[in-house]
C-alpha cells in the first residue's frame, strides 16, 4: 500500500485529498487507479504530472516500480532551459 501525496493544485482535482492510499506496483498502475477514483485527474495524469519516488523525480518512466513504503509525491511536470 503506497501513500500518495498530491500537490495542492492536483488535490483540487481529487476531491481535495492531499494524501491517498493506493495499492500499485508501478506508476502505470498508480495512474490507472487514480483515474478510476478521481476522473478529474485524467487529463493531467496523461502529460502534466511527474512522480517523485523517495525524492527522485520521474517524468516519463511509467514502468518505474513503486517500492514498498515508498514516499510517493505527485507534482506538475517540469521543464528546463
Amino acid at each position: 500500500m503506497a501513500e500518495v501525496n498530491l500537490s495542492a493544485a492536483l488535490a483540487a482535482l481529487a476531491d481535495n485529498e492531499r494524501q491517498i492510499q493506493i495499492e500499485a506496483k508501478d506508476i502505470r498502475e498508480l495512474f490507472r487507479k487514480l483515474e478510476e477514483r478521481y476522473p478529474g485527474l485524467e487529463p493531467v495524469l496523461k502529460n502534466d504530472v511527474a512522480v517523485a519516488i523517495d525524492g527522485v523525480i520521474y517524468r516519463d518512466n511509467w514502468s518505474k516500480e513503486l517500492p514498498d513504503d515508498a514516499e510517493i509525491f505527485l507534482m506538475r511536470r517540469l521543464t528546463g532551459g
Binding site: N5, D54, G55, V56, E71, F73, M75
Partner: peptide
C-alpha cells in the same frame, strides 16, 4: 522533507 514536497535522497 523538501519545501516543494518530496523527501530528499542522498544530496
Amino acid at each position: 522533507r523538501s519545501s516543494y514536497g518530496p523527501v530528499y535522497g542522498p544530496i
